[in-house]
Design a protein around this nucleic acid. Structure first.
Length: 568
RNA sequence: UGGGGCGUCGCCAAGCGGUAAGGCGCGGGCCUUUGGAGCCCGUAUUCGAAGGUUCGAAUCCUUCCGCCCCAGCCA
């Protein structure tokens, strides 16, 4: 329950403005002590991290105040909607960690009742059938600064309207020839109140109601009444619907329904280096810049799932970014931080070499193979230990060796001693190059007294490197992802494609991983020590493991190197 | 003089008349068999601006400035 002191600090976490309203309503018995929210997606696309904010809000408020949260598909536009999306959306919500129980609804289930409410509006003289064309309606609507004019059909009798509306439903008129409009105020400063369309004629096959209807209700009418039908108490939506609130209230007042939920608007999420508009995401797919909705670089929930982000991290992220009405662009680093925080606690550690450099330990016996013990997760003793084979010929990370080490580089270099994680101290004694001067192999010696990674004489080394035994290593494909855009605010530019990061994906086919990963299955996560968090991609097959890098580890050396480069 | 919103640290965000929470980021230190993690310290004398009210203002009043949304038979 929010408003209770934090276990550790004793401080009381502040309520966001929405929870403040809900808590106040509860105290005042505004909805007889009930809290009911809903998440109302239109099944015309995949859910993304912005939707996650809304899902966490709606389910979170319900959970905090012992209420309920419905999932309701706002499926009033058959031309754009599809079952593919209704299934995907349900999967995503469940994956995120929320359970709607029995509360799964469709606006289309209310079509008959909605039609009845429209009839009631007509009977009360609050709606009329208009024969104006779409273009004429637009003309008549006026502009932002000039009032609109009333349609010549606005004063039809109740009887005529009733008859016409029934015949609209019966299919007597062609698509687009007539609409049902609310009779409100053509001079309103709020464009939404200038006799908004309530119903349009549209012969399209609906994914649930088939060809049962040829008239479909519009959003404003449907949404308000669906909320009312479901006894919603707080209808939470994004800021662009603020202008619609007077219409939301008008619909509920004029249909004389008893349940009148309160609409409250909050600012939608924006993420740096990311686009979140459906339109722009679609462009990325259509142009082939990503492989689909579930491309691990996409900010969709399916994409993030494939990338390996834990749902818990997304929930933590949503809790942290707060809830307010001001326009915001949350730094994607906040998300990455939540992901690392979660993965650090939960991911077993494994050694993998992305760019192998062969190393021969000259004083290590030719045929000998040892099994060294390694801790699976230093954050979690219960995760236990495992055995990893060590032998004379190993792979190290190319980046972990420098023939001419720059300042502050304290990994392996000629004559330098470092530790191989969990194994031995080694010293580089020779560098082998090919005809092009390319380093192809390192010759090292090891100190047999340092087994396990510490020296009896107490001497220290500055670096601990990951490694893999050549003989036992498995080969894997690793896909490294970087942000999709180089511009911090790509969505602001209509030419957002210019800001595409050309190297958002790097595929490495020659990675070598320790043999223990053989048992990993698609979706499984691990940390490649010193590199980052990875998960097994569904593209993996028996012979070939494919890993996605979820996120890299924080890399202090990379930052130092960048700074040194920048300052010459 | 169209309507509706919003302006508190680089990015989020508390604050609701009693003298600027927290997170991310950034900088420094400790610790470390991951340059990971963890721990510690620092990071807005000032709240878009200017006036006013008050013993006291980010909070109240006035004016001004800036930004966002709205003219689908989309949601």
């Amino acid at each position: 329950m929010p408003g209770t002191p934090d276990k550790d600090t004793g401080s009381i976490p502040p309520l966001d403005f929405i929870r403040t309203i809900v808590a106040t309503d509860l105290v005042n018995q505004k909805h007889d002590g009930r809290v009911a929210t809903r998440f109302p997606p239109e099944p015309n696309g995949y859910l993304h991290i912005g939707h996650a904010k809304s899902i966490c809000l709606n389910f979170g408020v319900a959970a905090d105040y012992r209420g309920t949260c419905n999932v309701r598909f706002d499926d009033t536009n058959p031309a754009k909607e599809d079952v593919e999306y209704v299934n995907a959306i349900q999967n995503d919500i469940r994956w995120l960690g929320f359970d709607w129980g029995k509360h799964l609804h469709y606006a289309s289930d209310y079509f008959e009742r909605l039609y009845g409410y429209a009839v009631r509006l007509i009977e009360r003289g609050k709606a009329y059938v208009d024969d104006l064309s779409a273009e004429q309606i637009r003309e008549y609507r006026g502009t932002l600064i000039a009032p609109g004019r009333e349609s010549s059909y606005r004063d039809r009798s109740v009887e005529e309207n009733l008859d016409l509306f029934a015949r609209m439903r019966a299919g007597e008129f062609p698509d687009g020839s007539k609409v049902l409009r609310a009779k409100i105020d053509m001079t309103s400063g709020n464009m939404n109140m200038r006799d908004p369309t309530l119903y349009r004629i549209r012969r399209a096959t609906h994914h649930r109601t088939g060809n049962q209807w040829c008239v479909y209700p519009m959003y404003d009418f449907t949404h308000a009444l669906s909320d009312s039908i479901e006894q919603i108490t707080h209808s939470l939506c994004t800021l662009e619907f603020e202008d619609h609130r007077p219409l939301y209230d008008w619909v509920l007042t004029e249909t004389e329904v008893t349940c009148h939920p309160q609409q409250i608007e909050f600012a939608r999420l924006n993420l740096s280096y990311t686009v979140l508009s459906k339109r722009q995401l679609l462009v990325l797919i259509e142009k082939g810049l990503v492989f689909g909705w579930d491309d691990p670089r996409m900010p969709t929930l399916v994409g993030m799932r494939r990338r390996g982000l834990p749902p818990k991290a997304i929930r933590t992220f949503c809790d942290r970014i707060g809830m307010a009405k001001r326009k915001n662009v949350v730094d994607v680093a906040v998300l990455e931080h939540a992901v690392r925080e979660e993965l650090n606690q939960t991911s077993p550690r494994v050694m993998a070499v992305l760019r192998p450099l062969k190393v021969v330990i000259q004083n290590y016996p030719e045929e000998k193979i040892e099994e060294v013990d390694l801790v699976n997760n230093p954050e979690n003793p219960d995760a236990g230990t495992r055995k990893v084979p060590f032998s004379r010929v190993l792979y190290l990370e190319r980046d972990d060796f420098s023939e001419d080490p720059p300042k502050k580089f304290f990994r392996l270099a000629p004559g330098r001693e470092v530790r191989l994680r969990g194994a031995y101290f080694i010293t580089c004694v020779d560098v082998v190059k090919d005809g092009q001067g390319e380093i192809v192999e390192l010759r090292c010696t090891y100190d047999p007294t340092t087994r396990g990674g510490s020296s009896p004489d107490g001497r220290r080394v500055k670096a601990t490197l990951h490694w893999v035994s050549v003989e036992q290593a498995l080969t894997a494909q690793v896909r490294l992802y970087d942000r999709l855009f180089v511009d911090e605010h790509p969505g602001e530019n209509r030419n957002f494609l210019e800001a595409i990061n050309p190297s958002s994906l790097e595929v490495i086919n020659t990675c070598r991983v320790e043999p223990s990963v053989a048992s990993m299955a698609p979706g499984d996560r691990c940390q490649f020590e010193r590199l980052g968090y990875f998960c097994v991609d569904p593209d993996s097959s028996d012979g070939q493991l494919v890993f996605n890098r979820t996120v890299s580890l924080r890399d202090v050396w990379a930052k130092i190197a960048r700074t040194m480069k920048a300052s010459g």
